[in-house]
Design a protein around this nucleic acid. Structure first.
Lengths: 226, 226
DNA sequence: AAGCTAAACGGACCTCGGTCCGGATCGTCC
DNA sequence: GGACGATCCGGACCGAGGTCCGTTTAGCTT
């Protein structure tokens, strides 16, 4: 199978100075508006690269995904890989993009309890378990795709999760510092943490799920679901 | 000034396979038991290296701390740096070691409200603010010293913080999954997060502090301090 | 004091991420 | 269809982390 051979906005963003950012803007979620207008050859190469990367992962694991190897496997110059994806993180992220977009669509406009229609508290509960499972499925890739600490939270995909969590929280505990609380909640779903707990400490996923529900209950001051 | 020219256990640990770990054992906190028995020349070089690294940081910032540069500045071979500290993370961690040990001593046996003598809830509150401030002070170094995601939570220094948090939590909310809750609490003190919130989003430290107190209150189901 | 061994040393070497720029291509406009 | 400019391509190049192994040395033993 080959992952996302389309989508993802991650181009060689400029160095991004360390000035305070304005409040997060909502992510564009439209399935279009992506692939702005790549030249034909560029688009073809992009597809080849993603396919090659996916193949390499399947064969040698994430560690085998070397920028040079990917370039070679796609019959493309190394420079091309960087031009297209910016850096290794960008490439790996692009691989996750399909699933990320799907999750986003699910909680923004999918069926309850994840999507609108359920009360916020239930949506929040469902959100956590959904993220938890998605992360567990793609653990290796998620781990490898994690950017350096300085950029972890500026990543658009993260921004989307944070925004959603904040909005839900505001409906449940209007008086609280929901932006901060959202960070706390999301931190407990961090791929690195999940990796540690499940693979290094041997915790079963059920315990993590229960932990999430418990955490939500405590933080929102509500009862745990039966 | 030059940081810790002694202490720190970080040697070229073997690759550490991905098998589940047994429950965290308590950290040794004795000021001795460190520096197991380094040969004279090794000890001398170690000190030189740490001093050189500290100087480089002062002059060119953390980014200027290149393994080769440190080696050169200390009049030592590059191999020696790696032999002593394992990798860059190890070197940077050694630089933080002094302050880490001090914090640890403070909450293990220092005066209240951090140390024993205060009720657990107050100790937990104080613990968070202490960590928060220490991290904020050494942000750049802390950030650079952060190991790759796979090792973030196996690091002894982290283990110590986690253990302490867990123990306090158990006294406050005996019924809960304190091990998991501790992870959540600690995650909200993560250097990367603090960096993001303060430097990229411009939040004042007071807000983070308030956030910690609020979080502790919610998680433990107690009231916020006046 | 001489000898011996485990430990430490040093720097050549390798890999991999990332950059750069001369040259090839696409797509468009006359 | 020809020509022009923006975009893209490719691979040589660089820097930094990390490894390796032949050589040196501290410190104990006899």
């Amino acid at each position: 199978m080959l992952y996302a051979v389309f989508m993802s906005r991650a181009l060689p963003s400029s160095p991004q100075p360390q000035e305070p950012l304005e409040p997060l803007q909502l992510m564009q979620t439209g399935p279009e508006a992506d692939e702005p207008c790549l030249r034909a050859d560029a688009a073809r190469n992009r597809a080849r690269l993603l396919e090659a990367a996916a193949r390499l992962i399947a064969e040698h694991g994430v560690a085998g995904v070397t920028m040079e190897a990917v370039a070679a496997a796609a019959n493309v110059g190394k420079g091309t890989v960087f031009r297209r994806f910016g850096d290794r993180t960008g490439l790996l992220t692009a691989l996750l993009d399909h699933s990320a977009k799907r999750l986003q669509a699910d909680f923004l406009s999918g069926p309850p309890p994840l999507g609108p229609g359920s009360p916020p508290l239930e949506r929040l509960r469902a959100f956590g378990t959904a993220v938890l499972h998605r992360t567990a499925e793609q653990l290796d890739l998620q781990l490898a795709a994690q950017p350096e600490p300085t950029r972890r939270f500026t990543h658009p995909a993260f921004g989307s999760l944070h925004m959603h969590t904040t909005v839900l929280l505001r409906q449940i505990v209007p008086g609280a510092d929901c932006e901060l609380l959202a960070h706390t909640l999301l931190a407990s779903l961090d791929p690195a943490l999940i990796h540690h707990l499940t693979r290094q400490r041997g915790m079963p996923m059920e315990r993590l799920e229960a932990g999430w529900l418990d955490l939500v209950a405590r933080v929102t001051g509500t009862d745990r679901p039966r």
